[in-house]
Design a protein around this nucleic acid. Sequence first.
DNA 1: AGCACGCCGACT
DNA 2: GTCGGCGTGCTC
Length: 801
Amino acid sequence: MKIAQVIVDVSTYAVNRPFDYALNEDAPYVEIGSRVKVPFGRRDVIGYVVGLKEDTDVDSAKLKLISEVVDYRPALTEELVELAQHLAHHTICYEIDALQAMLPAAMRTSYERLVVATVPLEQLSPALRDIFESSLTQSFDSLTPVQQKLCKDAALVGEVEFQTSMKQQTTIKTERVLHIPSLERLRQIEGELSNRAHKQKQLLAYLMNYPNEALVEKVVREEADVAGPTIQTFVTAGYIERSEREVYREIDASQMAYDEKLALTTEQQRAFEAVRDAIDASRAETFLLHGITGSGKTEVYLQAIERVLERGEQAIVLVPEIALTPQMTARFKGRFGDKVAVMHSALSQGEKYDEWRKIRRGEVSVVVGARSAIFAPFTNLGLLILDEEHESTYKQEDVPRYHARDVAIWRGNYHQCPVLLGSATPALESFARAQKGVYTLLSMTERPKQSALPEVSVVDMREELRTGNRSMYSHALIQAIRERMERGEQIVLFLNRRGFASFMLCRDCGTTMQCPHCDISLTYHRSVERLKCHYCNYETYVPPKCPHCESESMRFFGTGTQKAEVELKKVIPDISVIRMDVDTTSRKGAHEKLLSAFGRGEAQVLLGTQMIAKGLDFPNITLVGVLAADSSLHLADFRASERTFQLLTQVSGRAGRAHLQGEVIVQTYAPEHYSIQLAKQQQYIPFYNVEMQMRKRFGYPPMFYIVALQLSHASLEKVIHYANQTARFLRQALDDSFIIVGPAPSLISRVNDRYRYQCLIKYKAENNLFDVLHQLMHMYRTKWMKEHLRLSIQMEPQSLM
DNA sequence: AGCACGCCGACT
DNA sequence: GTCGGCGTGCTC
């Protein structure tokens, strides 16, 4: 007998294991990775086949049959099924969550419970008759509790039946195609038509131009100027045949300008050859391409991919979400044409689904996309690339908490192909691995377009204060902005707003406006004139007086982009500014619109947060101003210095990319800090050395691996109790090579009226760690959860907030 | 997660 | 006496 092992679409501890199902012998196309519909308990669910075998230990009385195979071609490959198991184990999640993460959201199944009347309406009681009056099938969940009860009772006597309806969230788009007969047949039809059937004659005349062809119905309707019913008449009469065929949703086919292959510099050539050799040798080698901003990493990627395609293999390119601008993707499409699929968040569910199917069918060979594109179902991978590999967006924040870099390396191993990590400011972890020889280091230190690195100057804002300048713009920056305006050049102003938004403070008693549910200050939003909590979405009005001492000297502190714009216009009234922040870019496509408006020179200044640090590459920008470089330094987070350095380096790279000399002005209250000083000189390696000393001293990555366990509960007492229990359990279950830190209150000690505590595990070798964490999870799922405790486990957290 | 089974308090 | 509360246990 053929048995399939199935992981069911139920995300719970108790069913996080394969269930055996018998297979009908006439269902030969069930493979590992197939989605199937199976009876599970009292209902039907979707499941994934993760194994096939010949026999089972399950009681034959219990064993059930697979009721349906969902897709003709298995949704997942065997490789991805294996990867899901690996992820479930290493990120501590359920296998089903890992499997789901690999498919486009469109393929998620939504379930609806249905009640179907199985006897004629007249035979039902009057109350039931009311329910089924409109239709014999009703949605169970939209009935009132009383009606639900009636149905349950009726089910016992067999008057109604329960069913589960499953549907995919987004379906395959189809179009109708008309098959036109031969010319002789058309002539024959002409004779059969009535003289008064003008529209039909018109249609026929049009069809005469296309005998024996297949035409898209929509096009025929438009060009022959006939309506649907006319065509329907022809179909019904048997004059023409009609069928449906799958089509892909069209994504912006407009820009396909050919992208010319560039000659490589010596450095680029050396990097390219190293990667090419690994490609040719089918070697699973990880490269770290450390190239300063503007050193032409993309061209190396493109030529390496070209090599992969020549070998008939496939490539995945990951780019941080915000860098996936049309400019960026156009370059790949320009080089490789329709062999490229693009995957990013601006696509609709349906569009993503279509791109995914092109990949699954092997119709494309390159995918350029954000984090989740790392799961692209290619079967013959030859190269995986992560651009800006240090970006924190490569780590998924919720379950399954995977890091795309780890997944890339796993897949590289599976396919025996190289992985290429590129960055101007590699993550400390990556550079450390390159130093140890785990990764192969490739360096590029020159800019090919003989454009010089911009000149960077640091302005001490404390000095500005001393000389009486209380604004957020230094004299030097204002002066530089004025110069660019006169020369007709453009300016980018960058506000490092991480952990530093505008809050309200009473100058008399020092009261700050706090969120009543979280341990955090409320943020002032000028556009709606309200205070908001960024953690629980609590919102309130701006108080006219201090709620504590009734004083009227409530003031806003901190800097938002809105305030920065207002202040700038106070000093230079005739300046035109495009502001890019959450408020102005929330609408779909707004991001691109603002950028292209700036590119066309519609404004002198582009002012924004993080999101403008990447991806924009306009020749006319000659000045970059960083308003508060150190604001991210004050976060109590072990990556604070690294983030600041990365940000400053990236931002500086935006100035003077073409023939014009660029200038960067960095304003800060901590000019002597090493991350600011070394970013000023674009000196990554000295920064790496200093930062590694710090990490070593405080025992942080990459010296240690860390796991963060976050516990929360509405009661402070309870959360402390369980946090202590967690720490005790870990100390007893793990040996001395593990360091358990805490428990201690989280940095933000309360969110949404829940108190938060955390424990850290630091370690160098994993030993039995995963077993212990799974045991802990088991304890939590089976006991602690009932007490409304919440526990989450983060492997290698990006921050410790 | 759903859903059923099962064992104790408040209603027709 | 029955309806229904949610604790417990199972799903191939």
